[in-house]
Design a protein around this nucleic acid. Structure first.
Lengths: 151, 151
DNA sequence: TTCAATTAGTTGACACGACATATATGTCGT
DNA sequence: ACGACATATATGTCGTGTCAACTAATTGAA
């Protein structure tokens, strides 16, 4: 199997399985991995408009994540208010309940990161970062990540 | 941002964007990336039962891919016959039309691989493979990949 | 000032992907 | 031959993701 092909499927496999593990771990909290990403981003960078949120999300590139946010509002974790100065904009922020979830989400993410660290044990990851950053550099999801890391 | 966290999102970003690119390239053929994976696997390893196919797919771990196959049957690209010896089994194989698509799919994949090669240009990927293989080694999607590469 | 762009968000449609449950079909012990 | 178990596949449900088309609010140029 050609290296590029194996790499393609390794990345697919890693993403799928990582997401599956995270989904199972988050299930007791009643939220999904994508929803957890929104909550974390709102906590670290909020308040945000829908577009502003979308520009920081890796899980949803391009579209505005209105339906993703809808469910979080329905769960009572996120509040959406029309902005005063421009009624097209929306101000998204965590509710009290949402803010209280952050701690538990962080703990669950921590466990995922530990299993990533375990696979990284004793390896030089410089090339891994360089390769992946190069691949996504010019693409929306890659830019979202750059914006997240920067601010 | 912690390395494991960046790695997590880099993998997510790479998978999403790669899949998006591939989806757009495949659109003129009327099929999706997952459907293309099924066709390729059937071409290289078929005929297969549904479970046998599922064990070779990275895109769908665990479940039997019956609905994925349904659509390919509806498109006239895959044939499903009940196995003679055991009526629980199904024999999946490409139709003539499906077999003719393989060539075009391969060309489109080739372009994806070239953009992967471009990002890999001048880098030592040994660590990338080692890390990703270690992460998925014990998980269904990782095992599917091992089975694919082996036969 | 008025109306054509532009911008922000919503909604419809479709195909995944994961989990759970259901329905055949076959196997094996007794 | 009968029934408990196992196997292969199908189906229901939910939450994404993606593309495309739509509405509403604002801007700005003739």
């Amino acid at each position: 199997m050609r290296p590029a092909e194996e790499l393609r499927y390794l990345i697919l496999a890693a993403q799928r399985e990582g997401n599956r593990m995270l989904g199972q771990a988050l299930r007791p909290l009643g939220i999904t991995p994508s929803q957890a990403e929104v909550i974390r981003v709102l906590q670290e960078h909020g308040p945000l408009s829908l577009n502003g949120l979308g520009e920081l999300l890796v899980c949803e590139s391009g579209n505005s994540p209105s339906r993703l946010v809808d469910r979080l509002v329905a769960l009572g974790l996120v509040r959406r208010d029309v902005a005063a100065h421009d009624r097209r904009h929306i101000d998204l922020s965590l509710t009290q309940e949402g803010a209280e979830l952050v701690r538990q989400i962080a703990e669950i993410e921590e466990r995922l990161y530990q299993s990533i660290d375990a696979a990284a044990e004793g390896r030089e990851l410089g090339q891994v970062f360089a390769f992946l950053r190069a691949f996504v550099a010019d693409l929306p999801a890659g830019q979202a990540l750059v914006r997240r890391a920067r601010s």
